[in-house]
Simulated assay, not measured.
Amino acid sequence: MTDVVVVGAGQAGAALAARLRALGAAGRITLIGEEPLPPYQRPPLSKAYLLGEMGADRLTLRADGFWADQGIDLRTGARVTAIDRAARIVRIGDEALRYDALALTTGSVARRLPSPLSGVFAVRSKADVDALRPHVVAGARMVIVGGGYIGLEAAAVAAQLGLEVTVIEAAPRILARVAGEPTAAFFRDLHRAHGVRLLEGTPLAGLEGTERVQAAVLADGRRIPCDLVVAGIGVDPATALAEAAGLAIHNGIAVDARGRTSDPHIWAAGDCTSFPHDGGRIRLESVPHAIEHAEAVAANILGADTDYRARPWFWSDQYDVKLQIAGLNTGHDRVVTRQDGGTSFWHFAGQRLLAVDAAGDARAYMTGKRLIEAGRSPTPEAVATAAHLKDLL
């Protein structure tokens, strides 16, 4: 029997532990999380939960009693302080917990604005959003630093609730790291139509206030009065524990195609990892990847010896528009736009379809996803002229 310790009780950790048992693992499984809550979903935090449309009870990933019923020892509010690789032990305070296989699913850590002022928030954990929610009231002036998914989702919620919203983005455009220029233009127009002020190519110099934030100061000297500030400036892989244990780090915990780290008894999955992909290494931040990678690693811990093949896809909800992205547009040299009820942007490198960004068009997303996963590429001309999406299949 193999005793497995899983460190990190987010989406990846929960999926890995559950999959181990579903695959017939007979040994002890321990799932350890720092937050004092059972595993829960993070994506709704900046959307339905912040908006007040989803209660805390709907955030949890599994029903009450699931972990005990599966014979999984779930430990919440517990922090692993060290890994003893030679003895195969993790330390939780004074306790030493032995493992045959250790899985690190530590996720990522939100970057926070270095300010001592109150009224400055991040959106990563339920505790973060619980602290923010009482201040999201009609008429309040909110400045959001960062025009990625989290920042724009928070902006959409705040605008819907009647706040005066300004988004500051240091990069030349919003969604610079996660979506193409046409997609950014679509959402730029959408936010402006809802009264959101977008300042792109505008770095933040600092925050002003006495005890509470009163203004955001821009690098060009402009001052934006505000009642609260939300940081949506990205995340970093949570690698501190792995680094302290001497594991290889390359933009995350470096794992091979099967999820094994530089220590043969330690595995890793999800946002905290970088893994082989298309001849290089990549790190993905998405729920689908976290689940699929974790389940693949669970199988490999039990001896499947199967390479993980990522199928990148992402989504974001802003106002009444769902953005769904299949694939990665890195290296594209052409974009074809389609209008099929919603709007979709098809990214090509030469004749190869790389990614599809679908805004309010689930059929375009599913069509693009099927094509990309099958390694099939309609020509850009075919995408531009097809009367119906089904013709592309």
Score class of each variant (00 low, 15 high):
3 D>M: 10
7 V>H: 00
8 G>R: 06
13 G>M: 09
17 A>K: 02
17 A>W: 02
17 A>N: 01
19 R>I: 07
25 A>C: 14
28 R>E: 12
29 I>T: 14
31 L>D: 02
32 I>R: 06
32 I>L: 03
37 L>G: 09
39 P>D: 00
40 Y>W: 04
44 P>G: 05
48 A>L: 11
49 Y>W: 10
53 E>W: 14
53 E>P: 07
55 G>S: 04
55 G>M: 01
57 D>T: 13
63 A>W: 04
69 D>G: 15
71 G>H: 02
74 L>R: 03
75 R>V: 12
78 A>H: 09
81 T>I: 12
83 I>P: 09
84 D>E: 10
87 A>P: 01
92 I>Q: 14
96 A>K: 14
97 L>P: 10
99 Y>Q: 03
101 A>R: 15
105 T>A: 12
106 T>A: 00
108 S>V: 13
109 V>A: 09
111 R>F: 10
117 L>Q: 10
122 A>K: 11
124 R>D: 15
136 V>I: 15
145 V>D: 05
146 G>T: 01
151 G>L: 01
162 G>V: 03
171 A>P: 07
175 L>A: 08
176 A>G: 11
177 R>S: 10
178 V>F: 04
178 V>T: 13
180 G>L: 04
183 T>R: 02
188 R>S: 13
191 H>S: 05
193 A>H: 12
194 H>K: 03
197 R>P: 10
197 R>K: 14
197 R>Q: 15
197 R>E: 15
202 T>K: 09
204 L>R: 07
207 L>I: 00
208 E>L: 14
208 E>H: 10
211 E>Y: 15
213 V>Y: 03
213 V>L: 02
214 Q>M: 13
219 A>C: 06
220 D>V: 00
221 G>L: 01
223 R>Q: 11
231 A>T: 05
240 A>N: 07
245 A>H: 04
246 G>Q: 08
248 A>P: 09
251 N>F: 11
253 I>N: 03
254 A>N: 07
255 V>R: 10
261 T>F: 07
262 S>W: 03
265 H>F: 14
275 F>V: 06
276 P>I: 09
284 L>Y: 03
286 S>E: 05
288 P>I: 01
288 P>C: 08
289 H>N: 14
297 V>Y: 00
299 A>Q: 01
304 A>L: 08
310 A>D: 11
311 R>M: 15
312 P>F: 07
313 W>Y: 12
318 Q>L: 05
323 L>Q: 10
323 L>R: 04
327 G>Q: 08
338 R>L: 04
338 R>S: 00
338 R>N: 01
348 F>S: 02
362 A>C: 13
368 G>P: 12
368 G>N: 12
369 K>T: 13
371 L>Y: 05
378 P>F: 01
379 T>H: 12
380 P>F: 07
380 P>N: 04
381 E>Y: 14
381 E>N: 15
384 A>S: 10
389 L>K: 12
